[in-house]
Structure formats: structure tokens, C-alpha cells
Nucleic acid binder design. Sequence first.
DNA 1: TGTTAGCACTCTAATAAAGTGAGTGCTAAA
DNA 2: TTTAGCACTCACTTTATTAGAGTGCTAACA
Lengths: 340, 340
Amino acid sequence: MLTDRQLLILQVIIDDFILTAQPVGSRSISKKDEITHSSATIRNEMADLEELGFLEKTHSSSGRVPSEKGYRFYVDHLLSPLRLSNQELTTIRQAFKDRMMEFERVVQKSAGILSELTNYTSIILGPEIFETKLKQLQIVPLNDQSAIAILVTDTGHVEHRAFNIPVEIDHSQLEKMVNILNDRLRGVPLVKLYEKLQTEIYDLIEIHTDQHEHAYSYLQAALLDEHQTKLYIGGKTNILMQPEFKDLDKVRSLYAIIEKENEMADLLRSDEQGVHVRIGHENPFDAMQNCSLITARYTLGNEQAGTIALLGPTRMEYNRVISLINVLSKQMTETFRGWY
Amino acid sequence: MLTDRQLLILQVIIDDFILTAQPVGSRSISKKDEITHSSATIRNEMADLEELGFLEKTHSSSGRVPSEKGYRFYVDHLLSPLRLSNQELTTIRQAFKDRMMEFERVVQKSAGILSELTNYTSIILGPEIFETKLKQLQIVPLNDQSAIAILVTDTGHVEHRAFNIPVEIDHSQLEKMVNILNDRLRGVPLVKLYEKLQTEIYDLIEIHTDQHEHAYSYLQAALLDEHQTKLYIGGKTNILMQPEFKDLDKVRSLYAIIEKENEMADLLRSDEQGVHVRIGHENPFDAMQNCSLITARYTLGNEQAGTIALLGPTRMEYNRVISLINVLSKQMTETFRGWY
DNA sequence: TGTTAGCACTCTAATAAAGTGAGTGCTAAA
DNA sequence: TTTAGCACTCACTTTATTAGAGTGCTAACA
């Protein structure tokens, strides 16, 4: 167990390093107001903290740098909840004030705010689209050959896809089919759409239109979009401003990861309620081992949920960032609650 | 006027520099197969070419580097049309083979291909949306308080916006209004929508619904999206791979420009038909003075057009890039022609 | 027994000095 | 007109030197 003095020193060292990105020496610590002891005493304590694995040296005569274990301890035990500044709060309030009604906008804006306020990169995972249910299907003919299928879900999400109209099918038949589909598919989760189409709808179409084979295959093509859960990214270039990423290779490999939407989505999906912090090697990807990832879930009033995350160097302003992400995820949840 | 030998030497020097990014010395040129003269002769010619402003030195005893004037001359007079490799052609063909029907997809994919094949950053300006005409307006009620307005244009572009339904208006009234709007607004260019709403529609609504004031203001909010012309960017991080951008400050300032959508859009909008090359200071922005921008217009069958562009260092593979962008813009035009 | 002053020691980072090599310009001869 | 030859330039690399920040250890002190 650490003594109070050790706790204090560890905290001051990590705070300092987070601010300056420079290894922290005993003398600079001893000069701080909250520290009353001499540099020699600090040196002794630092040696102990290093032995315990909370601090590291970059070389034998350098100052100390927090280890991952140090950060972990800092996050778990040394973080005093921070009141956000007025400026930060108003930025958030302001953004949510003008009643945005689209989910996408809210999320995009949130990602923007988050990266702007923190100078890190924000990543927001949209809610699992495939769980949303079909509200309405519309087909808008553009001309004789093509039409647009528009799909509205109960969350107000809109997907659309253009497709060719087979020449054998005229407008009245198309309309008939759309009516059938709306009758039968309303309320069906998107993920079940295909299945339902296979089992129930085929027969119905067969009865009502003569060109059923043809119509069916075109319908399939029109409806079977990927329904992929979307990733919203803000401040991707903020990574470049962090001194730990002055090496371009690191930047590149980190970008490579971020761009792998599926893997990022899986990573973000995994967490439970509340704010979570993944430090360095706690992240699964090699390129993220100098990074920390802060995540929080938000919900959409119904059972659906998404994740809001912030990616930065392990030397991260945990205090502020955690408060921010906490406030923002709650604000998002709050905003969405009214909708559904 | 330049002699044939000077032309040859200039070409060889620029070709070499584009390949290696290193200042080119007289000896390395004299060793090339196509050059039969000694390094001393080359040196004399190089001195002349420098005096004429086509070449520069980085310092008094360095090899030569093309000046902007040199690149300009190279692009205007020394470029032999290049046959694209089979690999490049198949990449493009492949991408356009699976019949994508949405404009957005085609453009997004094109941006991807272009940046992938060139390792530069591709920027595609969508067609001027506000010139497209309204095809159909739909309103899908989500629940008692909210609905989604969906707007389909004649080009198959879909925009949607959620809005609150005023409590005073019930579904049948809403439906009536939508019918009126569709009758009156079909075929109206998006840019005129607002105007038309002001002048013609207001009276109509007044006649048909009792809650016209209320309904009207909500309609306005629902319909008046920004209709902004979109910018599609591919391979933004490719900039990092160019040796001329190992200085992060340059990268940052370039990113800053690219992210200013409006200014980029204006820049891309300006060009006429055909492939255009802007070298270094021919670009308006400070951050782009080490860059060249290659642009070409594509059209949508009707009168509408957009721009496809490629941004890289002035030391650019002009030959290949120009061919590529040429082929791709034609392919896009070709693809769209069938649609409208 | 905990704290601290003092000192030798270590290692980085900055600066200076010396050497290397690619490249140039000029001259004179072919 | 071309080219061989040579002196010269300048960036880049290597090596040395120094300054400074920091450590660990010891011995004295409260």
C-alpha cells in the first residue's frame, strides 16, 4: 500500500507529465507548493515508486515518466472529479441548443465538439442500425428505367438505394408491390428483412403480379443494403499535434487502424455502461499501444445504444476528458430520449 | 527558343526528379542511355536552362531542381500521352463494373480509386445540387410528435430532415399539405424552393388547412436544408507519404485548407472542360504553393457538372496522373449519362 | 529513524570541428 | 563545339567537447 506522501508525489508527477510531456525531475517536484520536502526526499520516494512499477526512467539519469501501471492507478484512484469550465459547458450547451432533429447531425456535431475541446481524435459508433425496425418503404420512380427505394426506420434513420426497374413491370404493379411490402414488413427489424422477404413475401408477390420472379430479384437488390453501423470520426488530424506522434510512421499506422471501420466498431461495441479507460497495452492493436481510449455508452431511449470514444496518447488529460465524455454522453442520451 | 538538346535534357532532368525527389546532377544525367554527351556539356546546358528560369539550385553547389516555370513547360510541351497500364485500367473498369446506381457511391468510389492509384489526395466536387429539381416530397410520420421530410431530386439525390409535428395538425391535414406541395413543387429547382414556398404555396395552405400559420413555419424548417454541394475526399493521409511533407507544419496547414469545404469548392468550380493543371503559386492558397492541383470536369448527362481533382506536391507524376484523371472523368461522365 | 545537504556519476542534447563527397564553374586543349 | 581536368562550394556525416539536468549514495543532522 502506498503512503499518503507517495500518493501525493505520484499524482503531482503524473499531472506534471501530462501537462509538459517532459520527464519529471525530483527538484522541479520539490519546488511545487503542495510539496514540502527536499528534492532528496522526493528522489527516495521516486525510487520506491519506480520499484513498485508506477514510474519509469527513459534513461539511467533521466527524470521519471509514468508507466502504464502508473496511469492505471492514477485513473483508478487519484482522479478527483473535475468541474468543467464554463467555456466548455457553454460550447456543449450551445451545440445542443438549436434543436437538431436528425440523429446523424447530433452525432456528427458531438464528434466535432469532442475533438475540438480536447485536441484528441473522437470516434463515435452509431447505434446498431440492424436492430431498428422498418417504419416505411417508399419507391420513387425517377424515369422509365430507374427508381429509388427509400427505407425509413422507427428511429428516423433513412436509407436509400437506386435500382433499375425491369421493363416488364409497370408503375401500377410497382405500387401494388410496395403496398404489400409495407403491410407485411412494417415493424420488422432491418436485420430480419431479408429473411422475411424470403419466407413470407415471395408467395404474396407471386399471387399479385405476373412478373413475380423478375420483380422479386430486383426487390432483393434494392432492399439489401448493408445496413452497416456507422462510425463518425472527428479531429483525425489532431493526432498530428501530439508530440508523441512526431514520428510519421506511428501516425500512419494509427490512421490505418482507425480506418478499419469494422475492427474499430467491434472495439467500441464491447464496453458496458459508464466511462471506460483503456491505457496503452490494454488496447488490442499494436499501433494503439502509446494510446489511451476513453469510451462511454449513450442510449437512444429505446434499448439501442452506441459508443462515444476519444483516442489520444497515453499521456492524456484524463481528468478533463473523462468529465467531458461523461457530460457529452449524457447530453446525447438526454437529447435522444425525447425523440422515441 | 530551346534547342532539341535542351528540351531533351530538361525532360530527362524533370523525369528524374519526379522519380527520386533528389536534386539532379550533371554526371547522373550524362550516364543515361538517351544522353550521349559528357557531364561537362550537360553542365553547360544546365547553366543555360537555369538562366532561362527552367531549373533551380537548392544551394550553390547542388544539383538542379525544376522550377515552377520548368514544370509548367514540362506539362505544356514535354508530356507525351501515356498509355495507362493494364493494371490501372482494370482497377478502374472493375470498380465501375458492378452497376452502382447511386451517384454518391460512384463518386466516393472514384475518389478512392484515384487516391489509391496515385498516392496523392483526391478531391471530388459533387454536382451543384441546388440546380437539381424536386422529384418528390414525402413526409413519413414517426410518432405523434415527429416526422421525417424526404426530398428526392430528379438526379436521384435524397435529402431528409426530421421535424416536429405541431400538435394542432393531424395526419390527414399533413397528408393534404404534402399533396399540395407535390403538385406545386414538382420540377422546381431546389434553389427556388424557398422562393416558391413564399410566394405560391402560402395562399394554398391557407385555404386548405385551418392551422396554416403554424403548418407553414414548420414546413419551412423542414424543407430549408442547406443543399450544400458536397466534397468527397479520398486518401487524405497519402499526403504524409510524400517526402516534401515530412514537415508536419506544412501538413497541418494543407489539411486546414482542404477542410475548408467552401473555399475548396469554389476553387474546383472555376475550371472549364478538359484537364487543367495548377502548379505551385498558380494556386491561390499559401499552403498549396508546394502543391499541384490537377482538375477535370465531369458531367451528369444533363447540364450539370462537377469537378474531379488530385492534389499532390509540385513534383508530381503529371504524365500518369493526367491520363488517369482524364480516363476517370470520362468514365464517370459515361456512367452517369445512362441515368438521366 | 526519517530527512536532507553534498557530491560523484550518468546520460542527453547542443555546439563545434573535421572530413567526405556530390556537384558546380571555369579554363584550356582537342 | 565538346570535353577533360581542376579548384572550389556546400550540405551532410562523423567525432569530440561541453553544459546541464538528473540520479544514487553517503554521511550528518534533528
